[in-house]
C-alpha cells in the first residue's frame, strides 16, 4: 500500500471517528492541536487503523504519533 493510500485510509477513519472532514487530514496536521482530536478518539482511530492496515499501535507508541505524517510513517514501517 502506498503512502498516499494509507493517508486516504487514515483520513477516512479520522472523519468517521472524530467528524473531521477527510480533506483536512493532511500530513503536516497535528491530531490534537490542529484537528482537535482528544485522547480517547485517538484510541478509536488507532483501533480502526490496526484493523484496516494490519499493524499494532500500542498506547505508548500512539503517544508518539503527533502528526498525520507520523502516523502514516509508522504504519508504512510496521504494516
Amino acid at each position: 500500500m502506498s503512502n498516499e493510500e494509507i493517508l486516504q485510509g487514515l483520513a477516512a477513519i479520522v472523519e468517521e471517528v472524530a467528524g473531521v472532514d477527510a480533506a483536512d487530514v493532511t500530513p503536516e496536521k497535528a491530531f490534537v492541536d490542529d484537528l482537535d482530536i482528544d485522547s480517547l478518539s485517538m484510541v478509536e482511530i488507532a483501533v480502526q487503523a490496526e484493523d484496516k492496515f494490519g499493524v499494532k499501535i500500542p498506547d505508548d507508541e500512539l503517544a508518539n504519533l503527533k502528526t498525520v505524517s507520523d502516523a502514516v510513517d509508522y504504519i508504512v514501517k510496521n504494516a
Partner: peptide, 12 residues
C-alpha cells in the same frame, strides 16, 4: 486509571 488503555480494552 490508565485512561487510554482502559478505554481501548473496554471498547474492544
Amino acid at each position: 486509571q490508565e485512561g487510554q488503555s482502559v478505554f481501548r480494552w473496554a471498547t474492544t
